[in-house]
Structures are given as structure tokens and as C-alpha cells.
Design a protein around this nucleic acid. Structure first.
Length: 260
DNA sequence: ATGCCGGGTGGAACCCGA
């Protein structure tokens, strides 16, 4: 069972890349972020023709997340239940049953707010979003629910996860308050699967368009899969697929895959 | 050069992202 997360930076601008990726790696489930389209403008036909069921939480111009799955999944939540007033489409919660795990697994596809610049309401919104999400998820943890959280976290977990910590000293993704909220998940038993399973350094998942980020190898590790222990125990592999970042007119993020 | 690029939107010397 392969699950892949990818911030596509506009599903309609990237549909040919997505098709190419799906035909190559054939994951069972895809978490997509930054669709930049409404539910009505999602390219359902292309993806259905590849053999996937689709759930979408879209929004005009910004944000938007979707889950593609070979087997039909149901939407459990499209808002954080403790943060229903959130106006942005940034989350999809669904459930998956696997034979090797007794209870249903909770799947979360998230597009966590960027939060820059840090002196504005945007940063307050980011921290608030993280607190509300943690409140909900950590409550599930207490009840020993198996959980997989995948997506674009906009969190640089440590200074090892950015090409130049100095340049990101005042960035919302590396801010101590951001890292503190992320650590609450780690300290509650979630495994940062890329950190734990992918060897070596510079395991970037994002390279910015500006200043030749990709060409210079100036990247960040901000797309993550976090798993509770029951899931971590059955992980076969975790990979960052750098290839799509090198394609013409690429997304600035590249896919991350876990196999269980 | 985070005034850099590349999306969306609407018709912008605009907005957003990270």
C-alpha cells in the first residue's frame, strides 16, 4: 500500500505532471495540496480515467486539498472539528481499513498555513491552526487511534531541514513557536517518517522558483508524513521523488511516498 | 535582490506562496 503526498501548486496547471506521476509510481492513495480550484473546476475525468476515486475540498484561487484513492473513501471532516470557523480549505480527514491493523486508520491530508510574515495576523493564524489541529489529533491519539498525517506542513522541523538556517531565521516555517507546535505531535508519539527512514542529509521536498532554488540545490524539508507507532512499525519504505521537480513548468514541491 | 518566479484573478505598477 503506497501513499504519496504532493503540493501540486495548481491542479489544473499540473494535471499532465500528475498523470505522468500516477502512471509511473501507481500509488494507492494520493494526498494533493494547493489545488487552486473550486470543487466544480477540479479535473475529475482525467483522474477517474486513471482508475481513482476522488474527494475534494476546493476553494477559489488559493488552498484546496484532494485525496485520490483506488478504493472509494468517505469524507469524515473537511474542517478541523475544533476550528469550524476556518474559512480556508486546508484539510481532509478520511478512514482506511487495512488487514494488518485492527482499528480503522485515520488519514489526514493537510495544507498547513504558511504564516509569513511573522509580525502579521497570518502568523497568528498559523499558530492558531496548529493548536486547533493538535487539540483534535492528540485527543484521537489518547484513544490509541492509528493515524497517518501527510501533506505540506510549512514546517522546517530543525535547522538541518533548510539549506541556509540563517536565511530562514525570521521565517514562519522555522519559527520557535511553529517548531514547538510541531514537536507536540512528535512528543506525543508521531514519527517524522522522512527524518527516520530516509538516509543522508539535504532531504528537501521544496525548492523555490526565485533565485534559482532548484538549480542551486537550495531547498527545504517541509512536506511530511507523520505516523503513530502502530503504522510506523509496518512501514516498508519512505522516499522523496525528486524527479517531478526537474520537469518543465514544475511545481515547487516534489512528491513524498510511504509504503506500508 | 523575498522588487528575483510562477500560479490565480481580472483586466493591476493586482493578489498569493515560502
Amino acid at each position: 500500500m503506497k501513499l504519496t503526498t504532493w503540493n501540486v501548486n495548481s491542479i489544473n496547471a499540473r494535471i499532465e505532471h500528475l498523470e505522468k506521476l500516477i502512471k509511473k509510481d501507481k500509488s494507492d492513495i494520493y494526498f494533493l495540496q494547493e489545488l487552486k480550484c473550486t470543487n466544480d473546476n477540479f479535473p475529475y475525468d482525467v483522474i477517474k480515467n486513471l482508475g481513482y476515486e476522488i474527494i475534494v475540498n476546493g476553494q477559489k484561487a488559493w488552498n484546496g486539498v484532494a485525496i485520490l484513492s483506488k478504493k472509494k473513501l468517505e469524507i469524515i471532516n473537511d474542517k478541523i472539528p475544533t476550528f469550524k470557523e476556518d474559512e480556508n480549505s486546508r484539510i481532509l480527514e478520511t478512514e482506511l481499513k487495512l488487514p494488518q491493523i485492527k482499528n480503522k486508520i485515520k488519514l489526514f491530508n493537510i495544507y498547513l498555513p504558511n504564516g509569513n510574515p511573522i509580525e502579521t495576523e497570518k502568523f497568528k493564524y498559523k499558530i492558531d491552526w496548529m493548536k486547533k489541529f493538535n487539540e483534535y489529533v492528540l485527543d484521537l491519539c489518547k484513544r490509541n487511534t492509528p493515524i497517518i498525517i501527510g501533506g505540506d506542513f510549512n514546517v522546517i522541523p530543525s535547522d538541518e531541514d533548510v539549506y541556509s538556517p540563517e536565511n530562514y531565521k525570521n521565517d514562519a516555517c522555522a519559527h520557535p513557536l511553529t517548531r514547538e507546535q510541531y514537536r507536540k505531535l512528535i512528543n506525543s508519539g508521531f514519527t517524522d517518517t522522512v527524518k527516520y527512514f530516509v538516509e543522508g542529509k539535504t532531504n528537501w521536498t521544496f525548492w523555490g522558483y526565485r533565485g534559482g532554488g532548484w538549480q542551486k540545490g537550495n531547498g527545504l524539508r517541509i512536506d511530511h508524513f507523520l505516523t503513530t507507532s502502530e503504522i510506523t512499525d509496518i512501514i516498508k519504505s519512505v522516499t522523496i521523488n525528486r524527479e517531478p521537480r526537474g520537469w518543465e513548468k514544475a511545481s515547487d514541491h516534489t512528491p513524498v511516498t510511504i509504503e506500508i
